[in-house]
């Protein structure tokens, strides 16, 4: 049986490079195109950064788990943490002109996730907070 494609690290910024490396290596083994691998790395990086910088505020950080679930037509990337849950809010898409001219706008992190992934969902249950990112192959 194949090994679980799962890696768990403390929610610290040095996990970002470890996660990107894990995705790159796994995609290579699975024969997934470099472009898709890159998009998964970017989406994971942005999502994990958000959790690391905000999700564990006020406590000694716990884990952040990255799991890849490859299927025949898509690959699912699951990021789980056990910190404070987030909630979705409707907001303006960021644009560089606005940022350059000091107009308030959110960052690019989540925007990149939506731009690179085919499906994005977020929920919290007894297993933790889950961000489920799906990319069609």
């Amino acid at each position: 049986m194949r090994d679980n494609l799962i890696i768990t690290r403390a929610a610290e910024l040095d996990a970002l490079a470890v996660f990107r490396g894990f995705i790159a290596q796994t995609c290579k083994q699975l024969g997934i195109a470099d472009d898709v691998s890159f998009q998964l790395q970017l989406a994971c990086d942005e999502a994990a950064t958000n959790v690391i910088q905000h999700g564990y505020e006020g406590m000694n950080p716990g884990s952040i788990m990255l799991e890849l679930q490859p299927g025949p037509k898509k690959i699912t990337m699951l990021l789980t943490d056990f910190g404070h849950p987030f909630e979705p809010v409707e907001t303006e898409a960021p644009d560089v002109d606005a940022l350059l001219n000091d107009r308030p706008t959110t960052g690019f992190g989540l925007y990149f996730i939506y731009q690179t992934m085919n499906d994005v969902s977020y929920f919290t249950d007894e297993r933790g907070n889950h961000l489920v990112l799906t990319k069609n192959l």
Binding site: H84, P85, V89, E90, T91, L110, Y114
Partner: peptide
């Protein structure tokens, strides 16, 4: 518009 995530 898109959906961002805010801390609960």
């Amino acid at each position: 518009m898109f959906r961002a995530l805010r801390l609960k």
